[in-house]
Amino acid sequence: MLKPRCWLLLLMVFPGLVSCHKNRVVDTSFYYWKTVYETNTTENQYLKALRCKNIYVRIMDVDQGDNGPVPVSPITFKATFSDSVQLIPVVFIVNDVLKNLTSHQLDDLALKIIYYVNGRIRPSGKTLYNELQIDCDWTRTTRDNYFYLLRRLRANASLKSKKLSATLRLHQLKNQRSSGIPPVDRVMLMCYNMGNLRKYGSQNSILEQNELEKYAGNNLSDYPMPVDVGLPVFSWAVVFRHKQYAGIAKRLHNDSFTDHKTFKSSGRSLYTSQKDLPQFGLLRGDEIRWENLSAGQLLSAANYIQKYISSDTIKIIYFHLDEQTLKYYTYEDLEKTAAVFR
């Protein structure tokens, strides 16, 4: 049996034997990024299994109309939320909308966003919410207008008791000196869509570990406000025609490529259509790059990110709540990934 002095010596030499990191509070959530909200047994099972208290629901996009910013593709609620789950509204703002707006127009936009969100969520059964999230891929040319809009939202009397959060792209994280720090309570780091979707080749534009590590690291640990983490649980079929980007084949799924007479594998998740497939918008000879993320890759990304998170509370938000993509992940896969942050 070791004497007290020996234990003290061991602790001095091997500080890793004792963890000084207190248990972090981790809240697991999902984004809901569809235009119609309705109940789904599989999706509800994931919410229950992961003990989700919140769902981040895209309420609308804000795009440029003939006479200024307008709501686009707003959500419709065909079902109501259960009492055990809170709705957190998310508004996506197209970056170009902000370029030439005056302060008066931005004041007006802030009021309209709040008014529209409050009205749109009523059919969900939720008249109250504790956080509003704004999603915008702002740039240096729109930063000042975007931050002004965020300040106007934050100052509104109806939001004073609520949190205001904003999404954060990896390039905004890395270039925070030029991109600026948004005037919000928290940011949600989008750890996906980090590659060039339109570039021909076998890369994965959703998430590649080496790309993630180029942007995060100390840039993440040095960020001057709490950072939540968005992780991808989606997949898509990227189509190339004559090696030029031709869009996303939305109805294609991983199971489609088991038909080798229809899709010939070129290796590394690349497939070539052997005939015209109008139901998918494909022509014979089109190349399809199937992009997804395995449970192991998701876990590796989480293990890397958690090393640079210093806050004692964090939200892990999976993008997004959809039966077709969730079937590639078990409850245990997603729980194990979230548990990395505890």
Results as ranks from 00 to 15, higher is better:
N156S: 14
A157S: 14
S158H: 08
K160C: 04
S161G: 05
K163C: 05
A166H: 02
R169Q: 13
L170K: 02
L170E: 02
H171E: 11
L173A: 03
L173I: 01
Q176M: 13
S178A: 14
S178C: 04
S179F: 07
G180I: 00
V184T: 08
V184C: 08
M188E: 11
M188G: 07
M190V: 05
C191G: 00
C191Y: 01
C191Q: 02
Y192A: 06
M194R: 05
N196V: 13
Y200E: 04
S202L: 05
Q203P: 00
N204R: 05
N204Q: 09
S205A: 13
S205C: 05
E211I: 15
L212D: 06
E213D: 12
A216K: 00
G217F: 11
G217S: 10
N218D: 13
D222Y: 07
P224T: 09
P226Y: 07
V227G: 02
V229Q: 03
G230E: 01
F234E: 00
V238L: 12
V239W: 00
R241M: 09
Q244L: 12
Q244E: 14
A246Y: 14
A246W: 11
G247C: 13
G247M: 13
A249Y: 00
R251G: 10
N254S: 12
D255H: 10
S256I: 03
H260S: 14
K261W: 07
K261V: 07
K264T: 09
S266K: 15
S266H: 14
R268K: 15
S269M: 15
L270Q: 14
Y271P: 06
Y271V: 04
Y271K: 11
Y271G: 06
Y271C: 12
Q274K: 14
D276V: 01
L277V: 05
P278Q: 04
P278I: 05
F280M: 03
G281M: 05
